[in-house]
């Protein structure tokens, strides 16, 4: 027997004795909580779009992310230019996408595109990483990204400033909705990485005092178009 078989055999042997179920026995067909049930237990998420937007803004702000709802796509360019000037961006990184292409086109600084591989040292030198996303989650103020939507694994975490460009229709009420979306989008062929980003990188490891920008970005800016 190899190690796998030995461990599995030990597990099966152990499980021949039943352990008591922690609660009321469940009726057949009621094997697990439905997303609707989970939704009723978690912190409340709003019903209407406007309320969800307000909730996302409130959560993102308390997480110390910067959130801007923009009316026009042109406004995106001017906002990004303002950021470039304020933070003196010399070089940025991004990936191909409808919104990212629109955003970086006007910046006038060198852009490292991560789509088909890149040099880590080059990415490390970039002042900002501009990505799209899969969803925004109102309940938690999170940005949901995956390899495909955010230019790989490192783009959203290595540069000191992560700028997210999100679409109106990407706003979701809560975590159960986010997992439903993932299931629909990827079926059972999930990508290499899916990440819920909830505020800029942080640590409390020194005297439980909050410090932003531990290893990941110190700043997280979300533009909502």
């Amino acid at each position: 027997m190899n190690e796998r078989e030995k461990i599995l055999a030990r597990i099966r042997e152990a499980l021949t004795v039943q352990a008591p179920f922690p609660g009321e026995p469940r009726a057949p067909g009621q094997q697990r909580p439905s997303p609707a049930q989970v939704r009723k237990w978690l912190p409340p998420a709003a019903d209407s779009f406007d309320e969800q937007l307000a909730l996302f803004r409130q959560n993102a702000t308390s997480l110390k992310a910067d959130f801007y709802a923009l009316n026009l796509r042109d406004e995106l360019k001017s906002r990004l230019l303002a950021l470039r000037d304020a933070e003196d961006w010399r070089k940025i990184a991004s990936h191909s996408g409808e919104l990212t292409d629109l955003g970086v086109s006007a910046l006038g600084v060198p852009v490292l595109k991560t789509d088909s591989g890149y040099d880590i040292n080059e990415l490390e030198k970039c002042d900002a990483g501009i990505t799209e996303c899969d969803a925004l989650i109102a309940q938690t103020g999170s940005v949901l990204v995956a390899n495909r939507s955010a230019g790989g694994r490192a783009l959203s975490v290595l540069p000191p400033h992560h700028v997210v460009l999100a679409r109106r229709k990407q706003l979701l009420p809560d975590l159960p909705a986010a997992f439903e979306l993932l299931k629909q989008k990827y079926g059972c062929n999930y990508p290499g990485m899916i990440s819920f980003i909830t505020g800029p990188s942080r640590t409390g490891d020194i005297e439980r005092i909050l410090v932003l920008g531990a290893h990941g970005p110190r700043k997280l800016t979300i533009f909502f178009l």
Binding site: A154, V157, S201, H215, G216
Partner: peptide, 11 residues
């Protein structure tokens, strides 16, 4: 919280 695992699994 820190992003260190993200980097560890990316680079």
């Amino acid at each position: 919280n820190e992003g260190n695992a993200r980097l560890t699994a990316a680079l």
